[in-house]
Amino acid sequence: MKDVIAKINDLAKQIRISTLKELNHLGFGHYGGSMSVVEILAVLYGGVMKYNPQKPNWPERDYFVMSKGHAGPALYSTLALKGFFPKDDLMTLNQNGTTLPSHPDRLRTKGVDVTTGSLGQGISIAAGIALAHKLSHRENRVFCIIGDGELNEGQCWEAFQFIAHHNLHNLTIFVDYNKKQLDGTLEEIINPFNLSNKFQAFGFDSLTIKGDDTQTIYQAIKTPRKYDERPLIVILDSIKGQGVSYLENMVSNHHLRLTDEAKIELEKAIALLEDN
């Protein structure tokens, strides 16, 4: 167990460094929401999911859906580090001719299963994939990350009803509960109230775990759920800008265009991460 968690934590550090470099090179982007999903991506790609970088469409792979598509830069870093495409490609993010558009596109990027970015749609697609696997008696698992601000979309709640009704035990959902969205805090825009109680009322098993607690996350999801178990939602109690104090302390860090000060501070953050 210790060796697995150590490898996951090292992957998380490398994802965070690569994502910062990727965004810094571009000069702008979705820093906050990319940082807050780093640990869950490290757990999934570092210790839980089945996949083959040389065969991205391997039929027996587990499927991943980044419903909050603006966190695409973190997903790209993860895929590059795991060998789906060269790491140098990260420096082409969101530029003309790139295979790495600002939001994930399954037709452009190796390892991306679902095109996302229109918030609310990813979870519905994940539900469809999970149902197809279940009806075909396949063992593929499906994992989906949704944003807490994304829960403002009614389509999410329609999907949750569908998932619970069909008892899609092969689908695990993560809510990036970083408590901020584009225009402010959740409470300021649409109060989420008690998410765990809401999901349980919708027919899910619900866990709340610190967003950077890789060991607890890993232990919660490493084993596939049994056929008669309810679908699982994991609420990741995260921080927008997680793992980078300069970003964490920003009031608004959803999308950041680099100032001279920001570039200096983020370069310092990268150096600190590389030294530790």
Results as ranks from 00 to 15, higher is better:
Asn9Arg: 12
Leu11Cys: 04
Leu11Thr: 03
Gln14Met: 04
His25Ile: 00
Tyr31Arg: 03
Gly33Asn: 08
Ser36Trp: 09
Leu41Asp: 08
Tyr45Phe: 15
Gly47Met: 04
Tyr51Glu: 07
Lys55Pro: 00
Asn57Gln: 14
Val65Thr: 15
Pro73Asp: 06
Thr78Lys: 08
Gly83Leu: 01
Phe84Gln: 09
Asp88Cys: 00
Asn96Val: 11
Gly97Glu: 11
Leu100Cys: 09
Pro101His: 06
Leu107Phe: 13
Gly111Gln: 05
Asp113His: 13
Gly117Val: 04
Ala127Lys: 12
Leu131Gln: 15
Ala132Val: 06
Lys134Glu: 12
Ser136Lys: 15
His137Met: 10
Ile145Lys: 09
Ile145Thr: 13
Gly147Gln: 06
Phe162Leu: 14
Asn167His: 13
Leu168Trp: 08
His169Ala: 11
Val175Ile: 15
Asn178Lys: 08
Leu182Glu: 09
Gly184Thr: 02
Thr185Ser: 15
Pro192Thr: 11
Ser196Arg: 10
Phe204Val: 12
Asp205Cys: 05
Asp212Pro: 00
Asp212Trp: 12
Thr216Asn: 12
Ile217Arg: 04
Tyr218Cys: 05
Tyr218Ser: 09
Ala220Gln: 12
Ile221Glu: 04
Leu232Arg: 08
Ile235Pro: 15
Ile239Gln: 12
Tyr246Ala: 02
Leu247Phe: 06
His255Ile: 15
Arg257Cys: 07
Asp260Thr: 12
Ala262Gln: 06
Ala262Cys: 05
Glu267Tyr: 00
Lys268His: 14
Glu274Gln: 14
Glu274Ser: 14
Asp275Ile: 00
Asn276Val: 10
